[in-house]
Nucleic acid binder design. Sequence first.
DNA 1: CTGTCCATAATGTTGAACAATCTTTCCTGT
DNA 2: ACAGGAAAGATTGTTCAACATTATGGACAG
Lengths: 227, 227
Amino acid sequence: MALIENTTAPVSGPAQLLAEMVADRIRQKVVSGELSPGEHLSEVALSEELQVSRNTLREVFRLLTKEGILRHEANRGVFVATPSISTIIDIYRIRRLIECQALAEGYPNHPAIARMKKAVEAARQAREEGKWLSVGSADIAFHAAIVELADSSRLSSFFAQILLELRLVFGLLQDPEYLHAPFVDQNQKLLEQVELGNFRTAAEMLDSYLLQAERFIMLAYARAIEG
Amino acid sequence: MALIENTTAPVSGPAQLLAEMVADRIRQKVVSGELSPGEHLSEVALSEELQVSRNTLREVFRLLTKEGILRHEANRGVFVATPSISTIIDIYRIRRLIECQALAEGYPNHPAIARMKKAVEAARQAREEGKWLSVGSADIAFHAAIVELADSSRLSSFFAQILLELRLVFGLLQDPEYLHAPFVDQNQKLLEQVELGNFRTAAEMLDSYLLQAERFIMLAYARAIEG
DNA sequence: CTGTCCATAATGTTGAACAATCTTTCCTGT
DNA sequence: ACAGGAAAGATTGTTCAACATTATGGACAG
């Protein structure tokens, strides 16, 4: 009789792995600002909201904690990571080290250059439309493309993580226009040098841009945590 | 009555998180060669052997897969990662990029230099005693210390992962003496330059050492997968 | 020998249970 | 009134058992 009936009903098998999909959704929630830095993520609440079991959610937490966008405290659960000054310093130290080196050793006709160009165009478009969050995304894509010049899958995915953490920092800051607008033209200038084959010059420009951006963001950060 | 009696008995609570401990044990199994590249890790078998539940083990699998020492295939489970030629290329590309840059921008009296010195001494000691696996460990520690010159926690832990993958490669190769012996003296020479404050010189030496090591290991690898 | 079907085993995912730990509340004694 | 502490409640850590889904291996037919 009804004893054999199955009550739990995952009607359709997972096309992709469930945990990966959930991880994507949480990443997006963090980037979009739906989840704020420092916020506590309750296992029961989130598992109900996302319609997954606690076990699956915990697998996701492990992933995202390793990625650095969540923080884990024993017996207290996970929280959205709260970037600090030292986070910003660390991120920009890494950006200068990796991006400049990748750029300096780039070569003409590398497929990543096309992606850089596309990102610059997307950024200009988004700027005209006033979509500052999209400008930020395009800026991220541009710098991810720079790292792809190094032709290293491991380096690229590591750098993607770093850029994701940077987006967390951006989320903390106000005034996205003031924040993202200057980068559009800088990226454009970088791309011009790259297309001329002047990779060394481009790398030097990038280094100074990044130093400048770091100071800029540190200031905005200091302003944000006070006001 | 006995209904309330508890049958499951984890008598003592976890001092540290169980999953982290299990992850350490599996990492060690991989590094020590107890688990070989390509080997399939059964969830039931391993969870029984390590005395943890399947769920906990799956959390660990997620971690180690992200670290790159395990590989996940949908509906087929996890396997110990099998380094390929392109893995070696990728690893050494990253090593040259990160290590040389970190070394070039190092400065005297940095605490990491003491760690480099300690690693060199440990390596010499281990070599005299013929403990080639320890020589390998010391070599790893030496290069991890170089990266710590960059003072970036994120970069250091990323690089630790890369070096762990490299150990996987070593596990694939025969003749650890032939493999590790040359590095001891090279590291010694590097350290001498660093202690003299010649960071630029050291960085250039390191670059050529790494190029040399890459060729060396590629050859050993090619020999290993054939014979 | 090759392709199909079925039994078997593995993974993917869930829900419930309980132990350990943290948090809040409330009581008590001074 | 208030500091200290015990009890109650909520949350995480971990396990287990169940079941759906997907691979694997073998028997069998052509």
